[in-house]
Amino acid sequence: MTPSGPRTDTGRDSARRTRLRARVEAAASSYHELPGWEEVAAHAAGLSDRVAVAPSLHTTQPALAMRLEAEGCTVVVPGDEDPAADVADVPVAVVGGELAVVETGSVLVAEHGLADRVVTMLCQRLVQVVPAEVVVDRLEDVAAWLAERSGRASFASLMTGPSRTADIERSLTIGVQGPDEVDVLVLTGTDPVTEEPTP
């Protein structure tokens, strides 16, 4: 891991994130801006002492599990054999997002393998971590991201808040088959390439 300098945050970036926060909260998720992964670990550990980490995030961010363990958590990274059983009773899961969309307050999560998918499907509280650099304005930005990767087998989900239903008398109930709660964490102080915390 190579140390990086502090990122430069423009007023435009800040305004964009303000709009993102409004949309995320309108979708019934919570929104947080954190400087780096250490704070992500502290945030997740504050929610539960058992935390799952999506395998693809664990690959790019191995230090996260160590930091969670340092916070006193038991960390679960589901394996390929029976990933659903691995995470079935884990209350909190952390995944990385590819994009965060201001227009809708959504986070795009790419999760091709089953072990990644079960993390976002089966946990009760989902923590989505997105670098500030990939906060985009419009759904067309998502379309461009998908089009660039077309031709490859993939599974990408634009997630907007916790699962919900209004199937009984149009009465809104949060938390059905998917997560009951969603936290969107925007990393404002981390180089997205090296994932190194700001000094």
């Binding site: 998908l146 997630m159 907007t160």
Partner: peptide, 19 residues
């Protein structure tokens, strides 16, 4: 439903590994 977007908008391209 009067929502700006549904909670999950999934884009599936082909099967996952092993499917």
């Amino acid at each position: 439903t009067g929502q700006p977007i549904t909670v999950y908008t999934n884009f599936l391209t082909g099967p996952r590994p092993g499917q």
